[in-house]
Simulated assay, not measured.
Amino acid sequence: MKKMDISTILASAIHESKNQVGTLLYQLQTLKETSDFQGSNKTKIVQIEESLKKLNDEWVEYLYLYRLASNGYDLHVDTFLMDEFLDDQVFALQPSAIAKNLELDYTCDPSLTGVFDERLMTAVVSTAVYNALRFAKSKISINAKKEDDFLVIAIEDDGKGFQPHQEQDDVFHEANTGLGLYFAELSAAAHTINHTSGFIKKDASTLGGASLKVYLPQPMK
């Protein structure tokens, strides 16, 4: 009997689970449109919907993680206007923030552009925001800027910030962060220009909490 590739089986299972979550989201949306929910019932429906969205995004992240780790992902880079890219991210994630009574916004130079894989960076930003939703007190902010030859996308919150023990490598990819930071690190490193690879950095936030910065190398002009 031919030995089975367990990683491929798991990836297939995740893909199927993601499809099922998508079906549940569609059914829930239909239920919302055909029923009149009020008060606590409406709040519960919104919370269930946002939890399903988060789960769906996590499945997407795991599939990308599998492909990145197995060199099975082909990078598709393009040039994007950061104002439009970040506006799209906030629009998609705003309901999750509202469900937790948190403010979510973005800032960047309106003329700033960046070269990167949109699918990977969308997954990285959403993963970082979902993580920040767990710790933020009142606000989460996404911002982008050019720093030397890198585009820097930062996700910041006003929570308690990274704890000193979290700077250790063994905790960097585990504990409360799960696979999120590892996924962000692989996604950033997949962006390479002239032997210069992207990377991530954990820092203190300008909002007083934690900041995850994703550094992506940019082509010389």
Rank of each mutant, 00 (worst) to 15 (best):
177 T>M: 12
199 F>I: 06
60 V>F: 05
170 D>T: 13
125 V>I: 15
99 A>C: 00
138 S>G: 03
180 G>A: 09
103 E>F: 06
208 G>H: 12
183 F>D: 09
209 G>A: 06
179 L>E: 10
14 I>M: 01
67 R>N: 01
154 A>N: 03
220 M>E: 14
67 R>V: 01
112 L>Y: 05
60 V>Q: 15
122 T>A: 10
162 F>Y: 03
121 M>C: 08
5 D>L: 11
51 S>G: 13
172 F>W: 10
7 S>N: 10
216 L>M: 13
148 D>C: 07
119 R>K: 04
115 V>H: 07
5 D>E: 15
90 V>C: 08
104 L>C: 10
92 A>P: 00
6 I>C: 05
78 D>T: 07
79 T>F: 08
4 M>V: 12
200 I>N: 03
81 L>Y: 12
104 L>T: 02
55 L>F: 06
135 F>Y: 15
211 S>W: 05
45 I>C: 02
173 H>T: 10
5 D>H: 01
194 N>D: 13
163 Q>W: 12
77 V>H: 10
80 F>L: 02
88 D>R: 07
29 Q>L: 05
92 A>D: 05
116 F>E: 11
178 G>K: 08
181 L>E: 01
118 E>S: 06
12 S>V: 11
141 S>P: 06
102 L>W: 05
149 D>C: 08
106 Y>M: 00
89 Q>Y: 06
25 L>E: 09
208 G>Q: 06
187 S>I: 03
116 F>C: 05
124 V>S: 07
19 N>M: 04
14 I>F: 14
174 E>N: 02
25 L>C: 10
149 D>M: 13
169 D>L: 14
176 N>D: 07
102 L>A: 01
130 Y>E: 08
85 F>N: 00
16 E>Q: 13
105 D>G: 04
30 T>Y: 15
154 A>S: 02
69 A>P: 00
165 H>Q: 09
35 S>T: 11
61 E>K: 12
154 A>V: 05
116 F>V: 10
183 F>L: 01
80 F>T: 10
94 Q>E: 07
125 V>Y: 11
4 M>R: 08
176 N>A: 15
148 D>V: 09
72 G>M: 03
37 F>V: 10
87 D>R: 12
10 L>H: 02
106 Y>S: 07
91 F>P: 02
44 K>R: 13
106 Y>H: 00
95 P>M: 04
162 F>A: 13
114 G>F: 00
26 Y>G: 09
199 F>P: 02
161 G>V: 04
159 G>E: 06
213 K>Y: 06
167 E>M: 11
123 A>Y: 04
17 S>F: 15
215 Y>M: 14
163 Q>L: 15
34 T>M: 13
121 M>N: 13
25 L>N: 00
202 K>S: 10
10 L>C: 05
219 P>Y: 15
127 T>L: 09
210 A>P: 02
